[in-house]
């Protein structure tokens, strides 16, 4: 029996008066990939962003319920958002490397945390870029601007940047929807490599992608969690009629 690393109980989220999440109960085991799927506006991205408190940045958001990371309440009054986001990293839809060199992008978190040992930084850069499966492509121009890379390479550098601060959980918000198919499949391969070492939660619009990489899949609709199960069951034998309709392309 694996340990549950992240648990959400009766999570409600309101944008002003509008209820965007209507009582989500969803837990995540350590390691492996969970995909969150569902039609646009179903709340899956909103839900993902509650998991490392990125919704804090949006005004007029009210959140009730409990999210616990290793037993600690993420929304406790004394919770440290900076520490939370170090342990729960995030990769966004639009690749967002900083306008610095590839090297600086990857070590930025560590450098700001005060790490100065050049050898250690070098090692982290190589390890993170290897884990993100982009090392071979960029190793000869680490000191050139990350903005000069292709979208897919940028996204993998962003993944490496998150890995460099050694998080336990990696949240990905439609990380391939702005990329071409080749880059997307490289990102998928990267994630499959990482699933043994990290807990990965990915929001995706691409059902094939979910079926290819996810161990578990959760289906969201209208701010509610409809069904969560092993990916195979969700796609082959969903328990819920709405899930079946969505999977078979009847809406969404």
């Amino acid at each position: 029996m694996k340990e549950e690393i992240l648990t959400t109980q009766d999570l409600h989220l309101y944008y002003g008066d509008k209820e965007a999440l209507k009582g989500i109960n969803l837990n995540f085991d350590e390691k492996g990939i969970t995909a969150l799927i569902g039609p646009s506006g179903c709340g899956k991205s909103t839900y993902l962003r509650t998991l490392n408190r990125m919704n804090d940045l949006i005004p007029n958001v009210t959140i009730t319920g409990t999210i616990k990371f290793k037993g600690n309440d993420l929304y406790a009054p004394n919770a440290d958002t900076v520490q939370i986001r170090k342990e729960i990293g995030m990769v966004f839809q639009q690749p967002n490397p900083f306008p610095f060199s590839i090297y600086d992008n990857v070590i930025y978190g560590l450098r700001i945390a005060g790490e100065k040992d050049k050898e250690k930084l070098d090692a982290v850069v190589e390890k993170s870029l290897r884990q993100a499966a982009v090392w071979d492509e960029v190793k000869d121009h680490l000191h050139e601007s990350a903005l000069a890379l292709s979208g897919g390479q940028q996204q993998r550098v962003c993944i490496a940047r998150v890995l460099a601060v050694s998080p336990e959980i990696i949240l990905l918000d439609e990380p391939t929807s702005a990329l071409d198919p080749v880059s997307s499949s490289q990102i998928e391969a990267t994630l499959l490599n990482l699933r043994h070492d990290y807990t990965i939660i990915i929001v995706t619009h691409n059902l094939q992608q979910a079926s290819r990489i996810a161990d578990r899949t959760a289906f969201f609709m209208n701010g509610e969690l409809i069904e969560v199960d092993q990916t195979k069951n969700i796609f082959m034998n969903p328990a819920n009629k709405q899930t079946e309709d969505y999977i078979s392309g009847r809406f969404g």
Partner: peptide, 15 residues
């Protein structure tokens, strides 16, 4: 400077 840079920084655990 695009907001995705701000999100990127914060999501990395920077204050």
């Amino acid at each position: 400077v695009s907001d995705v840079q701000r999100e990127g920084g914060l999501a990395l655990g920077l204050s």
